[in-house]
Amino acid sequence: MRLFAKARALLMLLLSFVWDLFASTGTVARIVLSPRIGVRPAILVMPTKLQKPWAVAMLAYFTSLTPGSTCLHVSEDRQTLHLHILDLHDADATIAKFRRLYERRIAELEA
């Protein structure tokens, strides 16, 4: 049963990534093709509860692979990610999105 739960978590993680990839690509394309660029780039500090080095690395990779965001730095204790966001409207909502799409599923794989 545990293997099934991990396989399901991995599948959901990959589906979440693909969905976010398409949505983010559309957002970035709209920004690039807009006649007036009105973006609000920002550095966002995202705490994480992930414990294992590979889990934190996966979170950093998934945030970096998503168009419009990249992981700039992971703290020495692996408890904080510093993310560059191309167009930040709401820091809390952005963190919640990354937690919902990626961190939650990675935590299921980590358990």
Rank of each mutant, 00 (worst) to 15 (best):
E103A: 08
I95E: 00
L81Q: 07
K97G: 04
Y102A: 05
L83Q: 11
R8E: 07
G26K: 12
R100A: 11
R8K: 05
F4W: 11
Y61C: 11
F98M: 09
L50Y: 05
V74F: 12
S16K: 06
R105I: 07
V18P: 13
A111V: 01
L50Q: 01
A7K: 04
W54K: 06
I31G: 00
V45A: 12
A111E: 12
F98P: 00
A42I: 08
D92T: 04
L59G: 08
Y102I: 06
S64C: 08
L15D: 08
T48M: 07
L14P: 02
H84F: 07
I43L: 15
G68Q: 05
M1Y: 04
R8G: 00
T25D: 07
A111P: 07
L33Y: 06
A42N: 08
L44M: 12
R100G: 01
A9T: 00
K97L: 05
W54D: 01
K6Y: 03
S69Q: 05
A5I: 09
E110V: 00
I106A: 02
L3I: 15
L13R: 02
I31Y: 03
L50V: 05
T27S: 09
P67I: 08
F4T: 12
K97R: 15
I106M: 05
S64E: 10
Y102F: 15
D92A: 07
L88P: 04
I85S: 01
V18H: 13
G38C: 08
Y61G: 09
L109N: 00
L3P: 06
K52D: 10
R105K: 15
V45K: 13
K97E: 14
A23S: 13
Y61M: 09
T27L: 10
G68S: 04
F22R: 11
G26A: 10
R36I: 11
R36W: 09
R78T: 06
V39D: 04
R105E: 15
L3M: 09
T48V: 07
Q79G: 14
M58C: 12
V39F: 01
K52L: 11
Q51W: 02
S64D: 03
T66I: 05
F4R: 14
I85P: 04
Y102S: 09
L13T: 03
S16Q: 10
L65C: 14
S16A: 12
T80Y: 15
I106N: 01
T80V: 12
I95C: 02
L81T: 08
H84D: 05
V18Q: 14
R30P: 00
P41D: 10
A111G: 14
W54S: 06
A9G: 02
D77W: 13
H82Q: 14
C71D: 00
R40V: 11
V74D: 09
L11P: 00
L33K: 07
D90L: 02
R2T: 13
A42T: 06
